[in-house]
């Protein structure tokens, strides 16, 4: 920066030293990243062209049993040629997008509505509600997933017990035994044409809804506070109803804050590894598998290291595409705010 330059004559040695200084500051970070980030990235690409398996672990790339198989891993992933049951790349990919989009589509409207509710003038106990509604944000998703997994337990879970109590009110006698996490038959077969959406998907949507909307409420509440009150006053003088005010003032003015939050929510849900892994492990029959959990299964349980590396390369390009799209959406809102 110009701010660093000192006026007057500077010797040549000092100038060179100054030119090298930023690189000196970058040296520690880039040395470390070269070894533990960039080299693994390159190594990943190399391994993706081999059939690296457990037998090659001892000698690595120098292993005599290692075969160079070109793009076979990539082709196998796309065409279902991997020695893995129930795996179909494009189904997992669509499910992954569907999972992230449906989550955001529930969390954002719910978060906004609850923020509006909390913002109603004269509502009693506002502060207590705010303190309670923030709780899901502070609990680790890992713990949330394990707790909900138990809640959805077929025999002893709280959800079935709750439904049993409700059913008893209506005269039912048998306890409810819904196999939330293991039932394979999709309740609404046509919902995702590309593959089944088992009951576990809905169970996870419920659990992730609990986890997701409070963050949106926090963001929306902040944005609501920055909307000038006189806008509403002017509107009500002009005879606008509550719902008209909501659609024509609140919604458009919340948009610049909610779109980045929605993008954040989308990326988080898209790669929600620990949550999915803890709740269903991708089951039943890989129907709730997302890209990251499948990649993990490839390396941890199936030990197909070559295929796992190739799959991670796919994940990188999917993430890059997602980033380019979401970045464009966020940018678009920025200009929208300025206009």
């Amino acid at each position: 920066m110009a701010t660093m330059e000192i006026a007057g004559s500077v010797s040549r040695g000092a100038r060179i030293r100054r030119a090298l200084l930023p690189y000196l500051y970058l040296l520690p970070a880039f040395t470390v990243m070269a070894v533990i980030t960039f080299y693994p990235l390159v190594y990943q690409i190399i391994v993706s062209f081999t059939d690296f398996q457990t037998k090659d672990l001892r000698f690595g790339l120098a292993s005599p049993q290692l075969n160079w198989i070109g793009f076979k891993n990539y082709i196998d992933i796309l065409t279902g040629g991997l020695p893995v049951q129930n795996f179909e790349f494009f189904r997992v990919l669509t499910y992954n997008f569907w999972w992230a989009i449906t989550n955001v589509m529930l969390h954002v409207p719910a978060g906004v509505l609850i923020a509006v509710l909390l913002n109603v003038q004269g509502l009693w106990f506002k502060k207590i509600y705010r303190a309670i509604y923030i709780l899901p944000v502070v609990v680790p998703p890992l713990v949330v997933a394990t707790v909900w997994r138990n809640i959805f337990d077929e025999q002893y879970g709280a959800m079935n017990q709750f439904l049993t109590t409700v059913a008893m009110w209506f005269g039912a006698t048998d306890p409810v035994r819904i196999r939330w996490l293991t039932e394979y038959t999709p309740p609404i077969p046509w919902l995702l044409p590309n593959g089944p959406l088992p009951l576990a998907y809905y169970a996870m949507m419920i659990a992730n809804f609990w986890l997701g909307w409070p963050f949106m409420t926090v963001v929306a509440t902040g944005a609501l506070q920055s909307i000038p009150k006189d806008l509403y006053e002017a509107a009500s003088i002009d005879g606008a109803s509550d719902s008209q005010q909501f659609w024509h003032i609140t919604v458009p003015l919340l948009r610049p804050a909610m779109i980045p939050a929605a993008v954040y929510g989308f990326t988080t849900s898209f790669n929600l590894f620990a949550f999915v892994y803890f709740m269903t492990g991708g089951g039943p029959a890989r129907t709730t598998e997302i890209l990251v959990t499948f990649a993990y299964d490839l390396v941890r349980n199936l030990r197909l290291y070559g295929a796992a590396a190739a799959f991670s390369v796919f994940i990188f390009f999917v993430s890059l595409t997602v980033f380019l799209i979401t970045n464009r959406i966020t940018r678009a809102t920025e200009t929208y705010t300025e206009a």
Partner: peptide, 27 residues
């Protein structure tokens, strides 16, 4: 260029680098 180099690993979900890290550490 260097800033993009820092940004690229950020795009990768954490699980995405686990295979090469596993193999390299294992050696």
């Amino acid at each position: 260029v260097l800033m993009i180099m820092v940004f690229i690993p950020l795009l990768m979900p954490a699980v995405g680098l686990s295979t090469p890290l596993f193999l390299l550490m294992n050696s």
